[in-house]
Simulated scan of single mutants.
Amino acid sequence: MNTSDVLKIVDHTLLAQTATWAQIREILDDAMKYHTASACIPAAYVKQAAEYVQGRLPICTVIGFPNGYSTTETKVFEAKNAIENGANEIDMVINVGFLKDGRYEEVEEEIRKIHEACDGKILKVIIETCLLTEDEKIKMCELVTKAGAEFIKTSTGFSTAGATFADVKLMKEHVGEGVKVKAAGGISSFDDAEEFMRLGADRLGTSRLVKIMKQTDNGAGY
């Protein structure tokens, strides 16, 4: 597999609290240069980013991030606002506490409401696998499928761990038809990226792969 095959499913990501417009602009420029799937950036920069790329690159942002315990109404507003500002894709964080309380209908309904707010745009549901039991991960595969979201995603990258091969394999085995898997958090090499893809990841959230490309001879290899 060549690097371009990997990069085309990468959400090139910068979500640091300290992110400046200059850094965001660099992320956008690099994402366009290396033809990534999107650039995933903080919501406060979405409007400026959308105006900057002028349709040349999908803009992704995050809501309820990184802890997921905002109210559903707040998350719905965030999603609508981001799309009004030009976001093409939304990554949301579930309420992990509700999941652990067994409030499955509420978790599912929240995803459904946010998906409706996305108005046809792609929704990726972050379940924060490092905080869940295997049974909870399987349950979230069921709930995401029932709620109609396009993707289930492993991690925010801001908790105790990121994506693992075992989690991607498990999620791929348990999601329903049409639901894709995004691995995010700690993906630091093309070898790892290719293994995630082999196990069933349809999208990768990372900034490191583009950084590797920039360090090579004009992006010719790695």
Rank of each mutant, 00 (worst) to 15 (best):
S189T: 14
P66Y: 09
G148D: 03
I187M: 09
G200C: 02
E128G: 01
M140L: 12
G64S: 14
D192P: 03
I27Q: 05
A31I: 07
G205V: 01
D101H: 05
T216C: 01
G178C: 09
T156E: 11
E177I: 10
F165P: 00
T206C: 10
C40Y: 08
D91W: 05
Y222M: 10
K137E: 06
D119V: 04
A44W: 08
Y104A: 11
I122C: 05
T18I: 01
D192R: 02
I126Q: 01
I63K: 01
H174F: 11
K153P: 12
I111E: 07
R198S: 13
A184I: 00
E134D: 15
I138K: 06
A184C: 10
T164H: 06
C40E: 01
K153M: 05
S70Q: 14
S4P: 01
I126P: 02
L170T: 14
A166H: 05
E136H: 07
N2M: 10
T61E: 00
E173T: 05
I27H: 03
K75S: 13
C60G: 08
K33E: 12
I114K: 05
N85V: 00
A79S: 15
Y34F: 15
I90D: 04
F158V: 08
Q48C: 00
L99V: 12
K124P: 08
V10S: 12
K47R: 15
G55E: 06
A220Q: 14
E84L: 13
F151L: 03
H35M: 04
S207A: 14
E26F: 11
Q215L: 07
E116T: 08
Q215M: 14
G102W: 00
G219T: 00
V168I: 06
N95E: 05
G148L: 03
F196C: 03
V96C: 09
L57N: 09
H35P: 04
K214Q: 15
E78S: 01
V6S: 02
M171V: 07
T36M: 06
G120H: 06
E110Y: 06
T154I: 00
C60L: 11
R103K: 15
E194M: 08
G162R: 03
A50S: 14
G97A: 08
G178R: 03
K121A: 12
G55W: 06
T154V: 05
Q17R: 11
S159M: 10
A149Q: 11
G205W: 00
A87L: 10
A201G: 06
M32I: 15
K169E: 10
N81W: 08
A166C: 00
G178S: 12
N67S: 13
M1R: 09
H35D: 06
T20V: 11
M213I: 09
A201P: 05
D11T: 00
A44G: 13
E110C: 10
A79G: 01
L132D: 15
T20E: 14
E26D: 08
E89W: 10
K182Q: 08
W21R: 06
G186S: 02
V125E: 14
K33N: 07
E78A: 11
D101E: 14
F165Y: 15
H174R: 07
Y52W: 11
E51N: 15
E116F: 09
L14T: 09
